[in-house]
Amino acid sequence: MLINPINRNTMEESNESTISRREMIVGTTAAIAAITLANVTGTQAAPHTVPLSLAKVSFTVNGQSHDLEMDTRTTLLDTLREHLHFTGTKKGCDHGQCGACTVLVNNQRINSCLSLALQHQGDTVTTIEGLGTPDKLHPMQAAFIKHDGYQCGYCTPGQICSAVAVLNEIKAGIPSHVSASLVEKPQLTNLEMRERMSGNICRCGAYSNIAEAINEVAQKQA
C-alpha cells in the first residue's frame, strides 16, 4: 500500500534525479513541491512556490508491510494514527512525557511520538491492534479487563504494550532502578513492575489494578 499524505492535486512530484544516487540514502535531499495557494482567510493570496520535503520509508505494522512517502516531519505516532488509521496508539502529550503512544518496534517498547517514521526503515512495528482484537484478546488485554486495569481507556493501549514488553524485559534479565542486585536476575515483584511501568501515566489512577493484571499474566507465564 502506498500512502501519500499530500494531496497530489496540489503538488508536483519531485524529480527523481534530485534524489541522491547513493543507495543508503532513501530520503530526498531537497524535494521541491510547488503549492499554489488560493483564497486564504478570504483574501486572494499570490501563488507561491514553497519547499516541502518528502521521503520514502518501508516498515511492517502488525504483520503488514507498508511503503510510505512521508513528509519528513511525520512521527511514527502520526503515521500510525493519521495515515494508517491505527488509532489505538494514542497521542497524550506528543513529547515523551506520558507513554500513551507506546508501541513495540522490533519487540522493544518505545514512545512513537519521539520517533520519525523515517527512522523505522525495515522495522517491525506492533501496535495494540496487533496484540489482539475484541474477539481474540491477548492475555494481557484479558487481564486488564478482568482486573479493571483502566478507566477512561486512553492510556490503556500504551499500558498494555508496555506491560507485554516489561515481562519480556524481566525475562531477558534487564535490571531496573529498584532491582536489589544488578548481577542477579530481576524478580517478578510488584515493586519491579511498578517501577518499569512508570513511563506510562494513568491519570484515572488505575495503577493498583494494572499491577494486579500484569501480575496475573506474569504468574501464568512463569
Binding site: G88, T133, F144, D148, Y150, G153
Partner: peptide, 21 residues
C-alpha cells in the same frame, strides 16, 4: 461486572474524539 466496553478499550478500537476517520 466487567466493563462492557473493556474489549474495545483494551484493543485500541474504542474511538475518541480525534479518531473518527
Amino acid at each position: 461486572t466487567d466493563r462492557i466496553e473493556g474489549p474495545l478499550k483494551t484493543t485500541g478500537t474504542a474511538k475518541y474524539a480525534y479518531e473518527h476517520n
